[in-house]
Amino acid sequence: MILEVDGVEFQYRSNEVLKDIKFHLKKNEILSILGPNGVGKTTLLKCMNAILKPKRGTILIEEENVLKLEQIEIARRLGYVPQRCEPARLTAFDVILLGRMPHMKWNLSTEDVMLVEATIKKLHLEELALRYIDELSGGELQKVGIARAIAQNPKLLLLDEPTSSLDLRNQLEILNIIRDFVKKENVSAIMTMHDLNLALRYSDKFLFLKQGTIFAYGGLEDITPEIIEGVYGVPVTIQNYNDVSIVIPTA
């Protein structure tokens, strides 16, 4: 078990946003957090690496409590890809090097540079490496962000809506990158998603949030049209096409 989350609660000031969150994740698994806008998906994701501090609960990553670790220690174990990487006058290589920060002492080592080079090759970003990120497209920027988190050498990858505002081809490319990394490198990933069909296609586990708490949690076989209607308030049917599950709204 790579991750065990139990009894996590979170409040913004006095508003209770999340309560009684409990789930776990094995190695080489991808979990999608699903639910309507504003339900707390991103909040839950940020609680995982303590960017936001849960009021109570435990988050164990390989049996260590994340909430008791220093920020830098957390960064050595969890890679976080926010929805947006701010464009700056830095090259893609510079940004991916940032992933080595949690492991660095005073300065870069040759291994850091080699590791970044290897990551760039693995993700086929050679063409981007020396370009400035303020000249990259949304899809390219997202790939650089993911490469940065991968260079961090994490045990668990956290991704906040990795495919939002990307075109179809980029959506698939990004999710393939994530899946390849998770399956090959003995790590796991959690991502928040809006697109149900992409989530069904690329994730092993699903966590549906409704009104700040878990509405349903399980594998592909556990997902029913009733759950989706319960969460989103839209009647749907789930069809199978060439072994891919597809959600179709029927309203």
Binding site: Q71, L98, R148
Partner: peptide, 20 residues
């Protein structure tokens, strides 16, 4: 210097990299 670079890439990115 590294921390300022991380903040340039966004507050969220920086926090995820262990920067306070």
């Amino acid at each position: 210097r590294w921390r300022y670079n991380a903040i340039d890439a966004g507050d969220e990115t920086a926090k995820g990299l262990g920067v306070n």
